[in-house]
Amino acid sequence: MNRLISEIAVILRQAENIIPSLFGRYPFPPEPLTVLANQHPEVPSKQPFSLKDLIGDGFLFAVPVFRRTLEVRKTRKIGIPYRGGPEGLKTLQKKPYIKVCNACGHYHERDCLCPNCYAKIKDETNEIKEKIIKELKLDPVDKEVVVLYDGEKAQQSPEFWNGKRIVEMEKARPQWFSKNLMQKSTQPNAETKELDISSTIVGKPSNIG
């Protein structure tokens, strides 16, 4: 008897599953059709916890929750930031950090050296470097190095060059490499700390093109 009842219960449970399809969208059958006194609530089957269930297929972060509206899509397409800030801005922006070099008229970036001027200086520096290394080799360096160009050694008496290591470049001095800047090593330090207006010479370097 018990078994009969449980079998009928199974059949009726199965019939319950058909009812939604009978009634379409609103599967609330009228009261007489609702079944049975002995409704055993379904006990969920106990399955062991497996990581595969949790991660198995993988899970996605940062998945869009809402659909982007047409307005938003269009705005992004033409490159107007819709969220404030510069993200998404696709229009060409002026670069205010491009300046004109006062010395050579070429362009360079505000915080960097002028490439045109620096290339010249770099080439000259490398030439001087090579010459110095050739002259000094591996001797212990104990004197300041003075770089002279064609004909400049003869301009001063030999005593003037005492205590300095001379490196002679076999070429004429480039126009833009001023001679005056060398005088730091050959000028004595100031005697007093007082400012003497007559002694501050405002010298104009020659040969600057």
Binding site: L113, I121, T125, K129, E144, F177, V202, P205
Partner: peptide, 22 residues
Amino acid sequence: VVLELKGNPYPTITPDSSYRNK
């Protein structure tokens, strides 16, 4: 970057503009 010791014998990297400042 260009790193240098002060007082080196090479041509100065920045133009020496002290003479015309006045």
